[in-house]
């Protein structure tokens, strides 16, 4: 067997295709291999392996892109999720939503209430340490452990409710103050609107969503104190391109204002929210497989060619300075002048 091994049968087809070979190989007899060349090759291979790994990691992790648009579609409702503990008994609290439509939403009927002990330490820890099992257990026991009959003097209000998706005001006030209700008038000395917000969010839960009010504690010793939170709600769509799923939920920005008020005003906790017209879209994306492969090829070939060229250049320079003449080998083949020494 000789040259025919590559299927180079002396047919006319093989002959004609062969003339296209743009990669003429040098016969083994004319090429040399040197230890230095081998070391360089190894180094280049290592480098490309490193870069390939980095690229692979980027490819697998994917990237996150943020875009925005004027919110499409016609909105109707929005969900408020709330978990708040107020240092007053449930029986004296009044929950209400009023909005730009002049609708009144009886939040008291939509949210659950239970008597608990006021414990701000647990809530704050829960916020700063995330899913810490110990604090969570402590908070849970401090909040739920006391039965409703026992009464802790504080009220935990929690649940979800649907509201109109427009400018609105959700507030917790004392019964008999602010609204004309046929309820009892509560003693002013029992007013204490200190509170712990365990959660306040709008719309569905998403792991990356950070609600700035979660775990916030506000305390007061005054009976007449007004806590106000001004919320700007930004509709946000989380989209995963790999799974093709998307979730429409809301983020919000908040400013807080609290002050002592006169006994003629209505004390309480007020959440005033408005919806921004521009919505965000956060999408997780991954480069296409083909693009990734092209990139890999680019990197590897770039390193090999570039490395070989630099190696060759060094050899050329070395030869030039020594004013020696040598027969040369093709640099693109990774062999250089100095190798033949």
């Amino acid at each position: 067997m000789n040259e025919e091994f590559f299927g180079e049968k002396r047919t006319s087809l093989g002959e004609s295709v062969r003339t296209f070979d743009a990669f003429p190989k040098t016969r083994a007899t004319y090429t040399t291999r040197t230890p230095r060349g081998g070391a360089i090759t190894l180094l280049l291979l290592l480098t490309s392996a490193c870069l390939t790994l980095t690229e692979l990691r980027n490819y697998l992790t994917g990237s996150e892109s943020h875009t925005f648009m004027v919110e499409p579609g016609i909105g109707h409702d929005m969900q408020i999720n709330l978990d708040i503990t107020v240092a007053m008994p449930c029986s004296s609290l009044h929950l209400n939503v009023q909005d730009a439509m002049q609708d009144r939403i009886l939040a008291g009927e939509l949210l659950s209430r239970e008597e608990v002990w006021f414990d701000d330490a647990g809530a704050h820890k829960l916020y700063s340490e995330g899913a810490d099992a110990e604090t969570e257990r402590r908070l849970f026991s401090s909040l739920v452990g006391k039965g409703a009959g026992e009464g802790g003097g504080s009220c935990r209000i929690y649940g979800s409710m649907g509201v109109n998706r427009i400018l609105g005001d959700f507030h917790i006030t004392a019964k008999g103050h602010g609204y004309w209700e046929d309820g009892a008038h509560i003693d002013h000395r029992s007013f204490n609107f200190s509170h712990v917000i365990t959660e306040l969010s709008f719309g569905d839960y998403y792991p990356k969503l950070v609600n700035p009010l979660d775990g916030v504690v506000s305390k007061t010793d005054e009976n007449f104190h007004k806590f106000q939170y001004f919320l700007s709600i930004v509709p946000t769509t989380y989209e995963s391109q790999t799974s093709g799923k998307s979730l429409l939920t809301n983020q919000y920005a908040v400013t807080e204002q609290s002050r002592k008020i006169s006994s003629h005003s209505v004390p309480g906790i007020y959440f005033k929210y408005d919806i921004e017209p521009i919505s965000l879209k956060i999408s997780d994306r991954r480069t296409a497989l083909l693009a990734f492969v092209v990139r890999l090829v680019n990197i590897v070939s770039g390193i090999l060619v570039g490395g070989g060229w630099v190696y060759g250049l060094f050899g050329t320079l070395a030869g030039y300075f020594r004013r020696q003449r040598r027969t040369t080998d093709g640099m693109l083949n990774g062999r250089a002048l100095g190798d033949e020494e």
Partner: peptide, 13 residues
């Protein structure tokens, strides 16, 4: 010192 092969031609095309 050059060798041209059919496989090379195919790869080129």
């Amino acid at each position: 010192a050059r060798v041209r092969t059919t496989s090379g031609g195919i790869v080129t095309l």
